[in-house]
Design a protein around this nucleic acid. Structure first.
Lengths: 346, 346
DNA sequence: ATTGGCACTCCGATGGGCCGAGTGCCAGAA
DNA sequence: TTCTGGCACTCGGCCCATCGGAGTGCCAAT
């Protein structure tokens, strides 16, 4: 599996990849000789190219076209060749500008992040909204709206606020609600929403044993409040940038991609992978393991609040993407969001 | 301006429009003679067509192609020729299926509506989220999170729930917050959010006259809570259906449209127009008054909660759209949403 | 008023020929 | 052994000419 490419092969491969990323054209041997890094005749370059093709790094669309990098080449490039530039001043300023407005709610902040990503990167920005169920409970509050309607508001340690309208089968007085609120806030302190919910369901299972009628009702109420709820959890911005890519001439392919974008669960599972690793992650082409997104790559990074990882964000586009400029953008954005969440929540 | 088209001209115009909507092709005289409604020779049809072209209803892409309806033709068709079919059983069932899940929050309900519209109509669905500022205030509640953080939750008569995290410059005790809550709920009963905000700002202007220190702080707090806030107010679903339209071969045009979709404020102003009228409204081509959406049409209808109009929804796509099937779908969806909102909120 | 006929126009598909870019291979230079 | 210049070859893209079909406008006949 280990292919120790010679220094020369590496330089040529790198040049081909970068040139192809820039022009979207197949690259020929003569073009390459114009690079200073390559002081060789076209013929020599051709030999190397033939070799790289055998190794699976290049592909010829047809006999008399140049060569195009394969996904394997991009993988190798990202892993071994790429030196990640520091984010240049101009782009950094552009990114910063998006966050001037302070005091944004988390939801707005994340949307702004997606916009920032897409507009600075000129690619489609994705941001995964934190999964409520795995964040830590902080506070719950009930507001009585009418005899049979209660509004539950709960806040997580990471600052997510969620509210839920509950139709109750029995009435609660304001005083009862206050009692319930106090009890629950004590009982669920420090648990994740998921744990809190499990706790309540467990208690409810022993309901017969519960002599305290109020408690019984409290449990029922809070179970409803904490119920799993699949709100849409991926924010996509800048899909129109995809249309500017030359790859776009392939209509069918574009349709596939746009359809994939409408399946948020798909994107969610992709971003989920970015949650695992610490730094920036690059998923290339087939690694996405999703036929609709064939030929696409994804750059993701996770962001965190004061108490650990919250979610992931990134950009998506054709595999021929300027990894060296996009990686710092994604990285910086993730760091920035993390910082802003830290500040905002105590 | 009144052009009393002869019965024969009308029938021919109608046939051309419907055939063009179905096939996306220019229609020739011979094709038309295959319709039973038209018992004429191609030559006669040609005479009528020439006439219709002079009147501005038809357009020839070039000499030897058939004719294509102009926007004026679509306008005339929608206003005078179209008989709106009742929504057929199959489509109605499809729509109903989307709303099986009960107890949705309004935001989810609206998203589901957008999905339903797009998937049944095979067009792009738009739903405008109710404008908070113009809905009627029902209840406000403050929750103290930390010494300097207060969560404001307010609910409108129409059941919209909004929460806002407020950083306070001074501390509030729980008791103070409760007092403030009670006062505000009394003072703002029955006002729109906008009015409530105006009231508070007016009171604050006379701040010097306020001897009650608590009241003063209450005003400041609630002004922050009710501050205008431009959350994104249009839900778009099913953009990929646009890609299935034959018009899509015109790449530049599609790019324009997708870019327009990213400017939510644009769509908002369009849907706003739908708010004025009572029933279904059709906006055709140039009437949209927006160069990015040239050649597009929009079908909208308004939906309402128990206390009046809340927002608008609809579908958007190329002007060559099957108005007769889409209008009932939009109409039914608007009615359905209104009904569900009625039920849900008392 | 309607229709059949006819000449005309123009698009789009088809196919040949040419050009240029790029390749592989080989023999000779370094 | 490694590199390079040269050469024959391949193949896609472009230009152009041709041709058929669809549709039109107009006119004379019914």
């Amino acid at each position: 599996m280990a292919e120790p490419l010679s220094d020369r092969s590496q330089r040529i491969l790198e040049a081909i990849i970068e040139e192809h990323i820039a022009t979207a054209q197949p690259i020929g041997s003569k073009t390459l000789t114009r690079f200073q890094a390559i002081r060789l005749s076209p013929a020599s370059v051709r030999n190397v190219m033939a070799e790289l093709e055998d190794l699976g790094f290049l592909h010829s669309p047809h006999t008399s076209a140049g060569r195009v990098p394969t996904e394997k080449a991009y993988r190798y490039y990202v892993d071994s060749l790429l030196r990640i530039d520091c984010l240049d001043r101009e782009r950094r300023d552009q990114l910063e500008q998006h966050y001037h407005r302070r005091g944004l709610q988390m939801a707005e902040l994340l949307r702004e992040a997606s916009r920032a990503l897409s507009s600075v990167a000129h690619y489609t920005g994705l941001v995964m909204v934190p999964r409520l169920q795995s964040t830590v409970f902080r506070r719950i509050e009930f507001v009585r709206l009418s005899p049979r309607q209660v509004l539950a508001v709960f806040i997580t340690q990471s600052g997510l606020i969620q509210n839920r309208l509950i139709e109750t089968s029995e009435e609660f007085t304001a005083a009862e609600l206050e009692q319930i609120t106090n009890y629950l806030n004590r009982a669920m302190q420090g648990l994740s929403i998921r744990e809190a919910r499990a706790l309540i369901l467990a208690e409810m299972a022993q309901e017969k044993a519960l002599y305290d009628r109020l408690l019984q009702r409290a449990f029922r109420l809070s179970a409803q409040a904490l119920a799993e709820q699949g709100d849409d959890e991926v924010i996509i911005e800048g899909t129109s940038h995809l249309l500017d890519q030359p790859e776009f001439t392939d209509l069918e392919r574009m349709k596939r991609i746009f359809r994939a974008f409408e399946q948020k669960s798909l994107l969610l599972s992709l971003l989920d992978r970015g949650l695992q690793a610490k730094g920036v992650q690059v998923i290339i082409g087939g690694e996405i393991e999703c036929p609709e997104l064939a030929g696409c790559s994804l750059i993701t990074a996770s962001y965190s609040g004061p108490r650990g990882t919250l979610g992931a964000l990134g950009v998506i586009g054709p595999s021929r993407m300027p990894y060296s400029t996009l990686i710092p953008i994604v990285d910086y954005t993730a760091g920035m969001i993390s910082r802003m969440l830290d500040e905002e929540l105590e």
